[in-house]
Design a protein around this nucleic acid. Structure first.
Length: 641
RNA sequence: GCUCAUAUAGCUCAGCGGUAGAGCACUUGCUUGGUAAGUAAGAGGUCACCGGUUCAAGUCCGGUUAUGAGCUCCA
């Protein structure tokens, strides 16, 4: 039979040849490192018989596909077997690969904890030492079910019985052993290909990801071809932990949380300075873009939430308050606003609006509260009390496109200024359940899409992921270590203006409902500041840094000059402090460097005599001596963006 | 909300049945030192909260709250 290789060359092999035979035919080196094959685009085991006239490429252990297969074999054949050896009464569920590693879900009688991981690792090493080869057999549905019924593996049974497949269930075996795993494969031909690995964490996970189902134990691990790669991965994880905003927030004295107000931020002076800088910056951009800043109540009667539909659909996420009878004659039920939109419509609804008033852009730094489930909170990233850089644009259908363009331009400017050079756009289109006619949806979706196209920005369409009230754009930025954060959003809404009776008088003299666009660039100040801290590892750009300059004396004779410098810097609007403590300069430098102060002035006898400053910038080991006036000029320049 | 873990001095952590410990930070003394930790002394804790076991509980057990890692959720 003839097999076509990736370079289009054709090889002739005897009937019934396998991927391994092909590899051996090409060369002994390849045969040694081959772990699987891709047959007509599908990954197959090396032991599978190749079909006539197929296109085949060989996966070697050192390729990305090879690594993934190794991780897969490690979890399904080694971790699973180790678990069965150590906990014979456990039931195996599934064991897929993920980025950088793998996990296995298992149900155990006795709960497994992190302390058990090293024992499990040891058992895995024992299994790997056997260097067993892995073989597979094909079973019919009926026979496969029988096998797993005998093995008392209900999850495997359920996978098989729910499959549409009738024949060819693949069961994998190791030498001289009764361990069996059901798997779509492919697997390594032998355990000798397993590289370096480490079990990393343990947690619960619902069977099939459904919170109604039983919770299983999930064991996570990471695996690499070499010890070196494993170590550099583990180091990278440590580095990421070092920039955790919760840790840096404590070290830099930015904010804290406490038990009495879970999920609500206590902003310290330095943290609040960052917040204010960011807010001032956004406010300037909003003013440039013809937004009108407003402010609306935080505690609002349930009647409004009933009218907006939130009471029905969102109540379990709302903080509800009751006013006690001592304080009010009739008992009222209020809710802390989880969103600003209904309140913005109330402002829109004051007075009659004409088509000439549109588009009307309201913006609010809206303080919102949402009762997030307890397990979902995470530092500044997911909180219960937060402030959105929220805005609502009331416009006609015809104005959606130009408003979209204007918004994307605003957002790109903001992200660029904040240090995020690129972002992705996701366009979510109509879901199954929705309000509004198809005609309106057609119009809105194409308005959003052509706005992005006009600006030449790449985008991705997510079919059916729009809200029930309209299509939306999501903006995802990438941080310094490659993580993605969905921050900006732009959502057309055909529902709320109608529900809350927002109207305008059109050119035809008749009343119409405007389209309402919900939009945010940062999303929430709290979360965005968390992202900024992590992106910069706490070393914020000068204009955002809470303390911009610390002026530290080297000898106490310089104290007077230090105070003079501080007041001059303050006159220039530079945030600075003096450090006159009775400590050595290296001690002061170390301390302020750890607090990520961007600029340290060290002032000794020489500087006093020459009216200069010794400037040390964060990240630099060297300092530069320059005249005070020059130093101030440079900092002021860098400070204005 | 679910699973597992954690909660001891301002911070980072040790102690794991016999009436609290380290390093750093803090205060004071000495030191005036040139770019990432000068030195000595001192002060600082209802061991998250509530209950139980025990002659005796940070220490063992149960509950509550918060936090962490995941899962689920984020109209």
């Amino acid at each position: 039979m003839n097999i076509t290789l990736p370079d289009k060359s054709v090889r002739e092999l005897p009937e019934g040849s396998t991927g391994y035979d092909l590899a051996r035919d090409i060369g002994p080196g390849l045969a040694k490192s081959a772990v699987a094959v891709i047959v007509d685009g599908e990954k197959k085991d090396l032991c599978d018989v190749l079909p006539e006239n197929s296109e085949v490429s060989i996966i070697t252990i050192d390729s990305d596909d090879g690594l993934e297969i190794m991780r897969h074999t490690l979890t399904a054949q080694v971790l699973a077997k180790a678990l069965k050896n150590l906990y014979p009464d456990s039931h195996l569920a599934i064991g897929p690969t993920i980025d950088d590693g793998f996990y296995y879900d298992v149900e155990t009688k006795k709960s497994i904890s992190v302390d058990d991981l090293s024992d499990i690792e040891k058992e895995m090493q024992n299994i790997i030492k056997s260097k067993s080869s892995i073989t597979k057999k094909l079973f019919s549905k009926k026979d496969a079910l029988k096998v797993f019924k005998n093995l008392k593996e209900p999850y495997k049974e359920s996978i098989i019985s729910e499959s549409d497949q009738k024949e060819d269930f693949q069961l994998y075996y190791q030498d001289n052993d009764n361990f069996v795993d059901l798997c779509r494969g492919p697997h390594l031909p032998s355990l000798s290909f397993i590289g370096s690995f480490k079990l990393t964490k343990i947690s619960g996970a619902y069977w099939k990801g459904d919170s109604k189902n039983k919770m299983l134990t999930r064991i996570y691990g990471t695996a690499w071809n070499t010890e070196k790669e494993l170590n550099s991965y583990l180091t990278a994880i440590d580095e990421a932990e070092k920039r955790d905003h919760r840790k840096l927030g404590k070290e830099m004295d930015l904010f804290h949380f406490q038990e009495e107000a879970p999920g609500m931020v206590f902003w310290h002076p330095y943290g609040w300075t960052i917040y204010r800088q960011l807010q001032n910056y956004v406010r300037e951009r909003l003013e440039e873009n013809d937004y009108l800043e407003i402010n609306t109540p935080q505690v609002v009667d349930r009647k409004l939430w009933e009218a907006s539909g939130h009471w029905d659909k969102y109540r379990e996420n709302m903080f509800i308050t009751e006013i006690d009878e001592e304080h009010a004659n009739d008992k009222r039920v209020n809710a802390l606003k989880p969103m600003n939109c209904p309140c913005h419509v109330q402002i829109y609804n004051q007075g009659i609006k004409s088509y000439r008033d549109l588009p009307l852009r309201y913006a609010e730094f809206g303080s919102c509260h949402r009762y997030e489930p307890s397990g979902t909170m995470h530092g500044l990233m997911r909180v219960r009390g937060f402030t959105q850089d929220d805005g609502h644009i009331f416009c006609t259908e015809n104005q959606i496109e130009s408003e979209t363009e204007k918004f994307i331009e605003l957002l790109s400017r903001v992200y660029r200024d904040l240090g995020f050079e690129s972002f992705e756009i996701k366009l979510s289109t109509r879901p199954e359940v929705r309000v509004g006619s198809d005609e309106v949806w057609d119009k809105a979706e194409s308005a959003l899409e052509s706005a992005i196209k006009n600006l030449g920005h790449p985008y991705e369409i997510v079919e059916g992921d729009g809200a029930f009230y309209g299509p939306k754009l999501d903006f995802v930025l990438t941080d310094a270590i490659g993580r993605e954060w969905q921050c900006g959003t732009f959502q057309a809404d055909f529902n709320l203006p109608e529900r809350l009776d927002a109207e305008f008088i059109g050119e035809d003299g008749k009343k119409h409902h405007p389209v309402m666009i919900h939009r945010a660039v940062l999303g929430s100040f709290e979360r965005f500041i968390g992202i900024l801290i992590e992106n910069y590892s706490g070393k914020l750009p000068l204009w955002l840094a809470p303390q911009q300059v610390v002026v530290a004396s080297i000898v106490s004779d310089a104290n007077e000059y230090v105070n003079e410098i501080v007041s001059k810097l303050k006159e220039e609007g530079i945030r600075c402090e003096s450090d006159l403590r009775n400590e050595k300069i290296s001690y002061k430098v170390r301390e302020h460097s750890l607090k990520k102060v961007p600029i340290i002035f060290a002032i000794g006898k020489k500087e006093v005599a020459e009216n200069t400053v010794s400037v040390r910038k964060i990240g630099n080991k060297d300092s530069v001596i320059k005249p005070l006036s020059e130093a101030i000029k440079e900092i002021s320049k860098e400070n204005s963006i």
